[in-house]
Amino acid sequence: MHRTHDLEIFPEYTVTQLLFKDLKNAAELRKMAVNGEIKGALINPTMIVDAFQILVAANKAVHLHKNGKMKTRSLYSEIIFNLSPTNNISEAFKRFGISDSDNAVYIVLVHNKEETLNVDDIISKVDGQQIDVDQVSELTDAAIVKKLYKVAPMEERCGSLLDAVVCRMATKDVA
């Protein structure tokens, strides 16, 4: 049920996405991510409009990682940071990372093609119901996303909320 996607610019990398609802062990998962037991980004799905948003963040993270220009310490924290419209790292984690009380989680894994990825191992650690990543739209809190990314109704005339969000993520270093 997870989704994998190759990065066209970095063909040796694959991004795997998993989505869980009715999550019961958010605090435990967060701890595992912090001490490296889970090698992945744990994201708050209410801030995610579409799987494409995740891919844009992951692609940028890999790009910055390979160039040694990451703003945070790891590839996974960089994915979370890239989702945020601001350059404030702690705020990015607060908004886009998961909190101990969350009841859903979006997990993003980036791996080299040569490595074998044990998805089942990750799935076994999550106490929740896995759903298709496309169902993230059911968990999105559009009002908060619009507020955080400062998307005015005007902008939605020329495109979707996803367009607005992705455009800001891609241009935040110069805008």
């Binding site: 940028k60 005007m154 902008e155 939605e156 005339r157 891609a170 241009t171 110069v174």
Partner: peptide
Amino acid sequence: AQEVRSILRCRRAGINAPVVYFVDYN
């Protein structure tokens, strides 16, 4: 950078211009 900035500025005002997906400054 300027090209990307102008596009974002237009889109913010509801003027249709292509969405920017990724910028590689290398």
